[in-house]
């Protein structure tokens, strides 16, 4: 069985939005401890990992199931959530559906078809990073917007104790520099200078679900995947994005 009650449907909507920016489908691995999912985007450039511990739910009861979901359909349903709605997720094993129930002034129920998406058994690779930066999401997203004006890819750099977001187009350049004492920076754990280049669209998708005051943990090295981690609604979201490397 699987039944979970979430006090704010809107918070769960953010989690689904975050995943659906990059993935078409997902397999929720539910167990008595909570829900987890790991998947690569269709082009295998990015990895999305989510962990929603049972403590994030108002009520939670489950044994082990793989619940395969079409994210586009789930996202459309979650878009129908109202501000004060509770969300109930409930597996109907007989009909092979996930019931998505909004409980507000009325009780509205959707039965979502399950897909045969087997769990990926992917693990987030255990990469050692020389640099770890905690930064307000709004500040980082703004720096990406600046970069977006000049090119479709961006360099994330650590240089002389500063965190730099740099883009260079055919004609124009943009650069945002964060020093350790910036109000936007919570902490910087700098080991060495580093530089990796990334596709901007992916970075924007990965950070879209974060509110501007949310804290992003960004891990970077040289020609290494960037790891971006944040919490929403009691869930942990981790994204890895492969770099562009000199061929």
């Amino acid at each position: 069985m699987f039944k979970a009650v979430i006090s704010e449907a809107k918070e769960f909507k953010k989690i689904i939005d975050a995943a659906s920016n990059l993935l078409d489908e997902i397999c929720f691995e539910v167990s008595e401890d909570g829900i987890k999912a790991r998947a690569m985007d269709p082009s295998h450039v990015a990895l999305v990992s989510m962990d929603i511990p049972k403590e994030a739910f108002e009520e939670y009861e489950a044994d082990v199931h793989d619940i395969g979901i079409d994210l586009e359909a789930f996202k459309k349903i979650m878009n129908r959530a109202k501000a004060k709605d509770k969300l109930i997720l409930e597996l109907d094993e007989e009909k092979n559906k996930l019931n998505v129930i909004f409980k507000g002034t009325a009780r509205r129920k959707f039965a979502l078809a399950l897909y045969d998406v087997s769990s990926s058994n992917l693990q987030v690779p255990d990469i050692e990073y020389p640099n770890e930066i905690l930064i307000k999401a709004g500040a980082f997203v703004d720096a990406l917007k600046d970069a977006d004006l000049v090119n479709d890819h961006v360099a994330l750099k650590v240089d002389d104790g500063k965190f730099i977001i740099y883009a260079k187009g055919d004609l124009n350049e943009s650069e945002t520099i964060f020093e350790e004492d910036s109000e936007d920076i919570i902490s910087m754990n700098i080991g060495e200078n580093a530089r990796s280049t990334f596709n901007l669209e992916y970075l924007k998708d990965m950070t879209k679900a974060a509110s501007s005051d949310d804290i992003l943990k960004i891990c970077i090295g040289t020609d290494m995947p960037v790891k971006i981690e944040y919490d929403i609604g009691g869930a942990n979201l981790t994204f890895l994005l492969a770099p562009r490397i000199e061929s």
């Binding site: 450039v45 490397i245 000199e246 061929s247």
Partner: peptide, 12 residues
């Protein structure tokens, strides 16, 4: 020229 690599290249 830089080329996009796949994330699976980093799975060991």
């Amino acid at each position: 020229k830089k080329k996009q690599v796949k994330i699976s290249d980093f799975f060991k």
